[in-house]
């Protein structure tokens, strides 16, 4: 929105408060994206660090296309993919290793159900190919438009839409129609 345009304007003119505000505004959202996409969750902070330092280096020439949150989230996603590749390992939490669902009798049923659903979704997301998981996270968490994602990846918007749809279909099959 307008605040982001103003922040970018000031940022490009060297206003450190603008950079600080951008960081504070989107830190938590970006941490979520990083946590959802990185196989090694210990690297989340480093990922955010790298993205912001690179972003700061672009001061003076940064041009915003689409939403700022979407842009920064795409940067996170791109670096997460690189880190995952570099680490050559995947987060493979099997259902057996998943945290046990609390079964306290004092817990309201709807909370217990929600935890179960969260665990199922958490597992299902790890089973998705990265390219699909990435688009689902960017679209639903960061509100990045398909066009903005497509442009950043140099592919067509339809390709991104298809990947998104395939991702949801795969999630559905993993969850076996439980939703």
């Amino acid at each position: 929105m307008l605040e982001d345009k103003l922040l970018i304007y000031k940022f490009n003119r060297g206003d450190s408060n603008a950079l600080r505000r951008i960081y504070e505004k989107y830190r938590d959202d970006l941490l979520k994206v990083a946590t959802a996409l990185l196989n090694d969750r210990n690297s989340v902070e480093d990922l955010l660090h790298d993205v912001f330092v690179t972003f700061a280096q672009g001061m003076g020439n940064f041009r915003l296309r689409g939403s700022l949150k979407g842009y920064l989230s795409i940067c996170i996603a791109n670096r997460a993919r690189d880190k995952n590749r570099a680490a050559q390992r995947k987060r493979t939490v099997a259902l057996d290793d998943a945290k046990p669902i609390r079964s306290d009798t004092s817990m309201p049923d709807h909370l217990a159900e929600r935890n179960e659903l969260t665990e199922q979704l958490d597992y299902a997301m790890t089973q998705l190919p990265y390219v699909q998981r990435e688009i689902i996270i960017l679209h639903l968490q960061s509100r990045a438009g398909f066009a903005q994602i497509a442009k950043s990846k140099g592919v067509s918007t339809n390709t991104i839409r298809s990947r998104y749809r395939y991702g949801l279909n795969k999630l559905r099959s993993i969850l076996d129609g439980q939703l």
């Binding site: 450190s16 950079l19 941490l31 979520k32 946590t35 660090h49 912001f52 690179t54 700061a56 958490d122």
Partner: peptide
């Protein structure tokens, strides 16, 4: 799923990231 992702941010992390970003700027 997304709303339940826990993120941990603290002042030390902010200081490190913002400090380096501002220096880069």
């Amino acid at each position: 799923y997304l709303e339940n992702i826990e993120v941990s941010a603290d002042a030390e992390m902010d200081e490190r990231i913002l400090g380096d970003a501002l220096a880069a700027m």
